[in-house]
Amino acid sequence: MDIQELAANLLAGDRRSLARAITLVESGRDDHRVQALELMELVQKSKREALRIGLSGTPGVGKSTFIESFGMMLVGRGLKVAVLAVDPSSARTGGSILGDKTRMELLTRERNAFIRPSPSQTELGGVARRTREATLLCEAAGYDVVLIETVGVGQSETVVAQMSDLFLLLLAPAGGDELQGVKRGIMEMADLILVNKADGDLKAAAQRTRADYAGALHLLRRRPQDPDGFPKAATVSAIEDAGLAEAWDDMQALVEWRKTQGYYAQTRADQAQYWFVQDIRNGLLGQLDREPLKSAIKGYAAQVSEGEISASFAAQTVLDALKGLP
């Protein structure tokens, strides 16, 4: 693969090259990883930036429907939109359905939209291992907005907040009953809580749910990077396109305020440091899957299961061996 040519085509906005580049960075092969690092260095020089929006929500809340309606609205305003949808992988087989693209039929046909489903594989945090690099590739390809959809909602899915400029929490009308099921951690990271399906018979329930969450947000400690009125809760209807324009206005206002106050640039710098450390940790963990440590770990595991040595002693022995590797 000619990495120089791939980078040039990607920077020119070629969608096929973008897809190939994401496939490359997601590959687990060592030779592909070397090429991926070369590619990332080439495209990073473009210094292009997109608004990164993380999106999480309870199962069945209508994340795909919301993304399609919201994305179509942004495309209609002349913006280029990329969607990185992460699907959960089976713990047994490792497979994923990757059905998000089929649920966004209208957005898929748009020339100024790019949709890429990826398996979460063994990664926690609601995102795939290389989602951040895929985000950077979408930025380099000239997309104005990158939507990062996580696999679900909970304590671990807050990792997406470490790679986005805005974090949206999407909920369904439930008269406030869902409030007990949403973890405080994810609420503290949310910039906007959007109650979807605010239409038809559910409209009144959506308004009540919004009020419940608005009250809950007031009880949380105010973050220095938020102006008055944020974080906030609002209602939207992806089917009727209601509230989407207002939500977009809120996002733009929040981002503009953070840029003016210096929080936007500082957050991106902090995120870059976070992922630097994460890449080091992932690299160290990857050493455990390579010889000779892989065989050694298997041998120690057998001794631990037989009760010949303690798990703590075996683990420390492996760590000591890791220190001696080149």
Rank of each mutant, 00 (worst) to 15 (best):
G229N: 09
G299A: 11
G62M: 06
A172T: 05
L42A: 10
A172V: 00
G262F: 04
L322I: 03
C138N: 03
A190Q: 04
L285C: 13
A242M: 14
T260G: 03
D270E: 05
R184V: 00
T209W: 01
L192M: 08
L137W: 02
D177R: 06
Y213Q: 03
L166A: 01
G126K: 05
L166H: 04
G283S: 02
L288E: 11
G57Y: 02
A172D: 11
I186S: 12
L11E: 02
G62S: 10
A253T: 02
L179E: 08
L107C: 04
I297L: 14
G13I: 00
V127E: 04
G76P: 03
G215I: 00
K232N: 12
R116Q: 13
V182N: 01
A314N: 09
Q273P: 08
L285G: 14
F230E: 02
Q303Y: 10
L293G: 08
T235K: 00
L169M: 04
G262V: 02
K47C: 09
D250A: 15
W257N: 12
L11D: 02
E308V: 15
R221G: 12
G229F: 10
D177K: 08
L288H: 06
Y300I: 03
F313N: 15
A242D: 15
L170A: 01
I53W: 07
T122A: 15
E5R: 13
E256V: 06
R281C: 11
A113C: 10
D30G: 08
E178Y: 12
K259S: 06
K183W: 08
Q207Y: 04
G307N: 13
R109D: 10
G324N: 06
L319V: 14
A253S: 06
L202P: 13
A19N: 09
A12Q: 07
N112I: 10
D201M: 14
V318S: 07
M163K: 12
L74M: 05
G95D: 14
S56G: 07
G181Y: 05
D228H: 08
G262P: 00
V127A: 04
R184S: 05
L170E: 06
A82S: 12
G28L: 14
A204C: 08
Q252F: 02
T122G: 12
M104I: 12
F167I: 07
A172C: 05
